[in-house]
Simulated assay, not measured.
Amino acid sequence: MDYLYYAKEYLMNTYNHLPVVFTHGKGCKLYDVSNKEYLDFTSGIGVMALGRGNEKWIKAVEDQLEKLAHTSNIVLNVPILELAKKLTEISNMSKVFFCNSGTEANEGAIKLARKYSFEKYGKGRNTIITLNRSFHGRTMAALEATGEEELHKYFYPFPEGFKHTDITVEALEEAVDPSVCAIMIEAVQGEGGVNPLSSEFVHKVFEISEKKDILVICDEIQCGLGRTGKLYGFNNYNVHPDIISVAKALGGGLPMGAVLCNEKLKNTFKYGDHGSTFGGNPVCAAGAIEVLNEIADESFLKGVADKGKFIKEFFKNKSFKNIKEVRGIGLMVGIEIKGEASEVQKKIFEKGLLVLTAGKNNVVRLLPPLVVSKEELEKGLNIIYEVIESM
């Protein structure tokens, strides 16, 4: 059966797929239709934090499937209530709204920020500042929030009320005016090139916000839930936002997103302000509980941080001719190269390793499962280094 023909014939042309069709996986390995093995340094773009085939996650999902697959948002179910308690407590937040994806989580965060400002200050205070090189999703408001003009073409007009700024203290201060109700940041910009924000810039965001009652939204969809060796990316800066958006790793492979708010926002949304038919699905929630049980453990997070140091040490001891910079935090790593990252990705794929790209197609991005071993890391890093330096 020619599955690649099916892809060309029946799928819309939204993705530049690598020429492979996978059937199953285990841990950090994937296997294609011919049973060829691949090492995965993408984790489904940060989704499969626990790798494939985690037995506790599978059991939780299977057990819940047998009990109750779906209700609706006019009634409650046990897994979503247990998840709400666990997620808000470990996040040090007050309340949570569940949805299906990262872009939906950011849409919810945008609505929550604007509702808070409208109730407190009235009309005209609804602008949200976001950063150049940011990525916040593909729906219309989240796409306009994204600070990548290349992604905006073809889709005008967008919803109003967003302002993009350079990632400097001076640009931020200039962007803030009486119309601003929130600032949205990623502690580490993933799609934009794996760019950790500077400590000076992050603290200026929070300083300005505190003075002017501007909300801080931290988009933790890619850099959150253990990816940087901390529960959230912003934990690396010793700050705490008003709103957190999460998704990707939360469901462990099932679609799930969430918006968390602090105490001052806990009663902002009223009945009918927001909703989601599948948000809070009991099967997704059962899986998410098992994800949090594992990644919220301090020893697990320390292990992620140690693996991040291992990657940095690997490259520190190498000489480069085609690598410009290796950056990131924990297991969120960007390798900026001289050349096209998509070409490097293809050559790495031919050697049985999956990686991602980012930035202006000049960054090889690594998001391995958080359970990856140092032996697997070393094997993959050697392939990456050899391919890049042989360009």
Rank of each mutant, 00 (worst) to 15 (best):
F135N: 09
K29I: 10
D273P: 05
H240V: 05
G190M: 01
E220N: 13
A171Y: 11
T14D: 14
I323Y: 13
N35D: 13
D40L: 01
A285N: 08
N267S: 08
H17D: 12
N126S: 15
E220D: 04
L367E: 01
F162V: 04
S276M: 13
S319C: 07
L367W: 07
V364T: 03
D63W: 12
I214Y: 12
S91A: 14
Y154I: 09
F162Y: 15
K95C: 01
V239D: 00
I58E: 04
R133S: 10
L254E: 00
E290A: 09
I80R: 15
N195V: 12
G252Y: 04
H203V: 03
R52K: 06
E173Y: 10
L292H: 11
F310T: 02
A288S: 14
G192R: 00
K264G: 04
S72I: 01
G303N: 13
K86C: 10
N281L: 06
N106T: 00
L4Y: 15
G359H: 00
K318G: 03
E107D: 14
E376L: 00
V304K: 13
S342N: 14
D63Q: 11
T357Y: 04
G108R: 10
I383Q: 04
N262Q: 08
V344R: 14
D219S: 12
K212E: 14
K309R: 13
L301R: 10
L225W: 06
I110D: 00
L65E: 15
V78I: 14
K264Q: 06
A7T: 09
E55N: 08
K321D: 06
E343K: 15
E207W: 05
I337Q: 05
P178V: 08
N132T: 15
N362L: 05
G233I: 03
E174L: 13
Y385P: 01
E9G: 06
N382M: 04
K204V: 09
M48W: 02
S342Q: 12
A109V: 00
P79K: 15
G359N: 03
F22G: 03
G280M: 09
C28E: 11
F320S: 02
T268D: 01
Q64P: 00
Y271W: 13
K163W: 02
N322C: 09
N92V: 10
V291M: 11
F278I: 14
L143G: 02
N281K: 02
S299A: 11
H136I: 09
Y237R: 06
V364P: 04
E336N: 09
A109E: 01
L381Y: 06
L367Q: 12
K204Q: 15
G303L: 05
I337P: 05
G46Q: 00
K8M: 07
G46R: 02
E386V: 02
S91H: 05
D297A: 03
S319A: 12
K163R: 15
M1L: 15
K29M: 14
